[in-house]
Write a protein that binds this DNA or RNA. Structure first.
Length: 647
RNA sequence: GCUACUGUGGCUCAAUGGCAGAGCAGCUCAUUCGUAAUGAGCAGGUUGUCAGUUCGAUUCUGACCAGUAGCUCCA
């Protein structure tokens, strides 16, 4: 007999050699029905695992991350089995569970069309209905390779060959004659995957490398219950309604135009207004924090970018002006401001007394992004970055880095995005040396410095190997859009290479010349991208301080127009963004429009209000907020503006 | 750049190898109205662009342009 310690601390006796499944059945059949996998002494295991020693045991249901993954991973095997049944020549690549579902990559003769996807989904339903038993088996690496080779599975063979050296047996799972390389865990039978849906089919490169073959990736999601699947699909539909690329156009924040071109959005008055509000706010705040504004040119001779290394690394991504042979001079629109601001530093000789020297700029940047990479306001060819470069001595680096992060956090909190971001420590990839300048020693030093700083800040971060800039490591502040896709919103970078390249120096106390450390940082990120995320965050209903139009005055009949005009003027003079809707439409009609445009406040002016000097306020989403004096409303509105995020 | 999908008036959508239709929005007129749509009338389209097939193409084919999702990239 062995002792099984459960999650709640209770200890159960069981036969030595009992399966995990039987342990759970012993606890409760209800729990067994909901169990996807388990943890034995903290290690993720299959329900078919045989337990032969005292252990700490935990059943994992769909509510546990690992349980959910086991469930969805099983769904991905069902997908693969269905594809192999319908298209036996298809070669299998990989098929993991991901955040909201699962995918499987296939190498197929023909790409999957929507009709084929339906057929595959139908076949998957059959496999679920057949309720096939899923069995695990192990093979020595050489036999495993032979096994996969015999089936023509070249990708699996490649994967096993990499594992072969470890001397461990290779694990497979088999269901109804379909065997797939997999370390598990998996459910016991296919019948448990009650509710699933294939969502999309796209191309994906083998091992994520664009030099490799392009495979067909089928995305799907799966849940234990149909109702959960439906709720999830409904949530996806709801998320789409917040999509800035749709909502931002509907609300007339921006538009695009074929004649102007891809990735070049036109900011309409409402969108432009929000960007203006943000820019003024950011520049003022930066000034308060000791940053000095520069305005540097939009383009420069190629020589500048050759020194910085951008010419070598990003030549294809730059808009180049002029032809060296014909025009003699070659220019390029700036893809970043770093080397321009360095010239400001270099404009006079520097001493340790000048440091830290903080330059900020609202920079217009131009990057020739590849055609498939543009997306709404999130990824564009011309954008506006709150960009800064800070030159400092080594001993100032930690404090200055911290203050840059504080600035970014302040901005995020003010915008109401703070809860939605995560941190990524973007490191270099020593396996990929050609992507970076500098020596391994320099990289280790720079990353060491940053790691120390991050450790001291106690912020939770994940490591992004290979995500560094070519000249240094980054702290990236990441955010997800409505589709769950993650992008960098704000970045803070440490650079000890470019100062050397540009010959930036300062004279230290002892008279020696030193290169300063440079922090590259953004405060609010790229304005266009931040606007996109704000539209999605607030579903277009901006908080008072950011709303392009804050108040609309709605006279009920023509009789009140003079008074409504007066009110509009008073509010405008008090600094509120206010307009008058004097059209001869019914009140309900005007209200509906203002509501759909997501205005924070509507002021209804009828005979009663016109006579006694009050306004009937209506707050967005809250209906009639009651009658109040104009002064009272003004005070309330101004308080709300000053409070920034208060909702 | 890669794979798939999409493109009909400002927006949402219909129809068809044989004269392209509706609602909303717009304009005009009437209505002067109390918290999410007043009524009537008018106007608006070389069906993304350019080729090809065809007696005839918006429909079929191709290229390009633009949009969407994902992959790759993102200084």
């Amino acid at each position: 007999m062995i002792n099984i310690t459960l999650k709640d601390g209770n200890i159960r006796e069981a036969e030595n050699g009992i399966t995990a499944a039987d342990i759970i059945k012993g606890i409760s059949m209800g729990l067994f029905k909901n169990s996807m996998a388990c943890k034995i002494d903290g290690a993720l295991c299959d329900l078919r695992t045989i337990v032969d020693k005292d252990c700490v045991f935990e059943a994992l249901t769909f509510d546990d991350e690992d349980g959910k993954n086991a469930f969805r991973h099983t769904a991905s095997h069902i997908l693969a089995q269905a594809v192999k049944r319908l298209y036996p020549d298809t070669k299998l690549a990989i098929g993991p569970a991901v955040e909201d579902g699962f995918y499987y990559d296939f190498d197929t003769a023909e790409p999957f069309t929507p009709e084929i996807m339906q057929k595959i989904e139908g076949e998957m339903k059959k496999i679920v209905k057949e309720d096939l038993e899923i069995k695990q088996f192990l093979l020595p690496a050489d036999e495993a390779i032979e096994f996969m080779k015999s089936k023509g599975e070249i990708y699996k063979t490649e994967l096993i060959a990499e594992h072969a050296g470890k001397g461990e047996p290779i694990s497979f799972y088999e269901q109804g004659g379909f065997a797939d390389l997999c370390k598990g865990p998996h459910l016991l039978k296919t019948g448990a995957v009650k509710a699933f849906k294939l969502l999309s089919c796209t191309a994906a490169y083998w091992r994520g490398d664009s030099k490799n073959k392009s495979l067909q990736r089928v995305y799907g999601t799966a849940f234990p219950k149909q109702s959960e699947l439906e709720a999830h699909l409904a949530m996806l539909e709801e998320a789409k309604k917040r999509d800035h690329n749709k909502l931002g156009r509907d609300l007339k924040f921006f538009t695009t135009n074929e004649l102007i071109g891809q990735g070049l959005p036109v900011l309409l008055p409402k969108g432009a207004r929000v960007l203006q509000i943000l820019q003024r706010f950011v520049e003022d705040e930066e000034q308060k924090r000791g940053w000095m504004l520069t305005k540097t040119p939009f383009f420069a001779k190629s020589d500048l970018y050759k020194i910085s290394g951008h010419w070598d690394h990003y030549r294809d991504g730059m808009f180049v002006i002029g032809d060296g042979e014909k025009d003699g001079e070659v220019f390029a629109l700036r893809p970043m401001t770093c080397p321009f601001q360095y010239q400001a530093y270099l404009s006079e000789s520097r001493s340790y007394r000048d440091l830290p020297l903080r330059y900020n700029e609202t920079s217009y940047l131009f990057r020739n992004e590849a055609s498939g990479e543009m997306h709404g306001l999130i990824r564009v060819r011309q954008f506006t970055l709150s960009e800064g470069h800070l030159m400092c001595a080594h001993e100032q680096l930690a404090d200055e880095f911290k203050s840059c992060l504080e600035l970014a956090v302040f901005m995020l909190k003010t915008l109401g995005l703070y809860e939605d971001v995560s941190y990524r420590f973007s490191r270099w990839d020593p396996e990929n040396r050609e992507k970076y300048i500098g020596t391994a020693q320099q990289w280790e030093e720079a990353e060491g410095v940053m790691e120390n700083i991050l450790g001291g800040l106690e912020i939770p971060y994940k490591n992004g190997v290979g995500e560094a800039a070519f000249y240094g490591p980054k702290l990236d502040i990441q955010i997800k859009n409505v589709h769950g896709k993650e992008d960098t919103l704000i970045t803070i970078q440490i650079d000890q290479m470019l100062a050397e390249k540009f010959g930036m120096e300062y004279t230290d106390r002892d008279g020696s010349k030193k290169n300063p450390y440079i922090i590259h940082r953004s405060s609010i990120g790229c304005y266009e991208r931040t606007l996109a995320l704000l539209i999605e965050k607030y579903a277009g209903a901006f908080p008072m301080w950011l709303a392009p139009e804050q108040v609309r005055v709605l006279p009920i009949t023509d009789r009140q127009i003079p008074r409504a005009k007066e009110i509009t003027d008073i509010l405008e003079n008090a600094g509120l963004r206010c307009t008058l809707d004097g059209r001869s439409e019914k009140l309900g009609y005007k209200l509906r429009e203002a509501q759909l445009e997501k205005l924070p406040y509507m002021l209804v002016i009828g005979d009663k209000e016109a006579e006694d000097g009050t306004v009937s306020a209506r707050k967005r989403g809250q209906g009639d907020a009651g009658s109040m004096s104009l002064d009272e409303f003004l005070a309330r509105a101004q308080k709300e503006v000053a409070g920034k995020i208060i909702d």
